[in-house]
Structures are given as structure tokens and as C-alpha cells.
């Protein structure tokens, strides 16, 4: 079978040690958590880091907890943990719905939230989820911690705001009341990457209009995995079918899908419209306490 090229292996027992190792080994070192994005690339010899720094020992980064008005998710939290988290299920159904269609159950036992975000695959699902929820990531280095909005996190395909000598340690999402959320994905087969996927949350105001809304879109070249104009359009408006359709159409028109064996551009664009509308409609129903 395919095998990785040789590399040096280090193991970090703490975040500080991981940062020290990153600093010592320089830009050709890579952190490895679950490894389910990096190792296949290494086996194809498309990635050949000189040093791998194994951070699976950082159990203190494996948590999902409420901190004030936010939910904090440690970077080493496995996908399976996110899928089954009662805290996340209480606040945001979008997590379980997205996780259920990320890779497969065995991969989810190993893959991590931080690893998925840092891989920054343009078809990655959690990027869309966190973009929809307008999450923040916490990045640490020897200099200390800094917080980056999801909207500024992705710098392009496979590129993020995490710099040399830095490690993503946490993702945060604000807790919102009167909110519903949902995730919609079309894949060619269970476990495949998205042809397109969309997630949303909708928060109602006292007057029954949409007080706040977030839209996340993946696999179709949506800027920062979202569509701000569509969100702006909905904010403050009553959740009518027309408004939803209009917002979905904006999302479809503004993304930049590329053709591949998952589908041609016109189909992907069409799909964005369908999936955004579905995600919004189910979010609205859930915010109202209806089954969806």
C-alpha cells in the first residue's frame, strides 16, 4: 500500500511543548492530531513534512463546555464527541446533523475539530458550520493567545490564519436564544465529500422577524464559507418563503463552484439554492419549536 516518506516524530505533552516543538522544528514541521487529512496526503507523498508533532496527548484540549454566553470546543475534540454532545445538541442541532455526514463513524472516532479546520479543505463541513454560527478560533503561540473570527480564519484552500509556531486550541460559538439550526448536505454516497452543503441558524426577535441569521456553505467556493449579503437580506425581515428564496438565490449566484466529478457548475449552483433554503426553513421551524 502507499506509505509516507520518512519524517522525524515528536510528541507533545502540553500546548506549551507543542508550541516549543513547532518553534524548534520550523515551518517544515506539522502538527498531527487524528491524521485523517494529513496522512493520506503523506501516503500519496503530496505532503512531506520533515517533522510530525503528535498532539494526541493533549487531552486537555478535548472538551465541549459552556463558558458564559459561549460554547467552547477544544481543538482535540473528536468528531464523534461533537456528534454525541448533549451541550451542542441543546443549543445547535446543526452540529449533529453535520457531523453525521462527515466521513464515516470510524474516521469520526479519530478526526478532530481542530484538525479539520486547520486542514482547511474547501469542501470541509465544520468550516461551514462555524462560519454559519460566526464562531471564533483561539490560536496560541509563545506570544500568548489571539482570537480570530471564522470570517478571517480561512485564507484560501488549505490555508488558514494559523501561522508558524502557532496552534489552534479552541473554537467558540456564541449561545443564542430562540434559535434553530440545521445542516443540509448532498453527497454522491455516504462518507463522500460534499457535492455542496449548507448550514444555517435563525434567531427570532420579539416581533417574530428574523433577528439574526447565519449561513454556512461549503464545497462551492463560497467566500469564507458563507454569504454575508444573503444574511443581511434576511436580518430584520419576517421569515417568508419569498425572503428565503431570495436569500438562497443570492447564495447560489455569489458562490464560485468548480466542475469536478461531483458535478458541473450549474448543478452545484442550483444545489446551493436548494440546500440553503432547506437549511433556513428547517432552522426556522426549529426556532419555533416545530419538528424539522
Amino acid at each position: 500500500m502507499q506509505t509516507p516518506a520518512p519524517f522525524e516524530y515528536e510528541r507533545a505533552a502540553s500546548v506549551e511543548e507543542a508550541i516549543a516543538l513547532l518553534t524548534r522544528h520550523g515551518p517544515e514541521a506539522r502538527l498531527i492530531a487524528g491524521g485523517h487529512s494529513l496522512l493520506p496526503m503523506m501516503k500519496l507523498r503530496l505532503a512531506r513534512p520533515e517533522t510530525l508533532i503528535d498532539i494526541n496527548g493533549l487531552a486537555d484540549l478535548d472538551y465541549i463546555r459552556v463558558e458564559g454566553d459561549q460554547i467552547a470546543i477544544g481543538a482535540m475534540t473528536r468528531h464523534a464527541t461533537v456528534l454525541e454532545s448533549a451541550v451542542l445538541a441543546e443549543h445547535y442541532r446543526i452540529f449533529a446533523e453535520a457531523e453525521r455526514v462527515i466521513a464515516d463513524p470510524i474516521v469520526r472516532n479519530r478526526g478532530t475539530v481542530g484538525g479539520s479546520l486547520c486542514q482547511a479543505d474547501p469542501s470541509e463541513d465544520l468550516s461551514a458550520v462555524f462560519a454559519a454560527l460566526r464562531g471564533q478560533v483561539v490560536i496560541r503561540s509563545v506570544e500568548g493567545a489571539r482570537t480570530v473570527d471564522l470570517g478571517n480564519f480561512h485564507r484560501g484552500p488549505y490555508e488558514t490564519a494559523v501561522g508558524d509556531g502557532e496552534i489552534l486550541v479552541e473554537v467558540r460559538v456564541p449561545i443564542r436564544t430562540r434559535t434553530g439550526s440545521a445542516y443540509e448536505k448532498v453527497e454522491r454516497r455516504a462518507g463522500d465529500w460534499s457535492v455542496a452543503a449548507a448550514g444555517a441558524f435563525v434567531q427570532f426577535g420579539d416581533d417574530g422577524s428574523i433577528a439574526d441569521v447565519g449561513i454556512g456553505i461549503t464545497a462551492v467556493g463560497a467566500e469564507h464559507f458563507t454569504c454575508a449579503p444573503a444574511e443581511d437580506l434576511l436580518r430584520g425581515r419576517p421569515p417568508t418563503a419569498e425572503a428565503i428564496e431570495e436569500a438562497a438565490a443570492i447564495c447560489a449566484a455569489s458562490c464560485h463552484p468548480s466542475a469536478d466529478q461531483r458535478g458541473p457548475v450549474d448543478y452545484k449552483r442550483h444545489l446551493v439554492g436548494v440546500l440553503v433554503a432547506r437549511a433556513l426553513n428547517r432552522s426556522i421551524a426549529r426556532a419555533r419549536g416545530e419538528a424539522a
Binding site: R188, V195, A259, R262, G263, Y267, K268, L271
Partner: peptide, 22 residues
Amino acid sequence: FTPAATWRAMQGRPLRPDLAIE
């Protein structure tokens, strides 16, 4: 009949399965 192929068939513009999707 991938989702894309099915949809394109419905649109009357079916895909050629043997060639790259463009």
C-alpha cells in the same frame, strides 16, 4: 445516476459518464 447526473438528466442536458464533467 449520481445526484448531478440525475439532475442534469431532468434538465434535458444529460452528462457523458465517460468524460470529465466540465
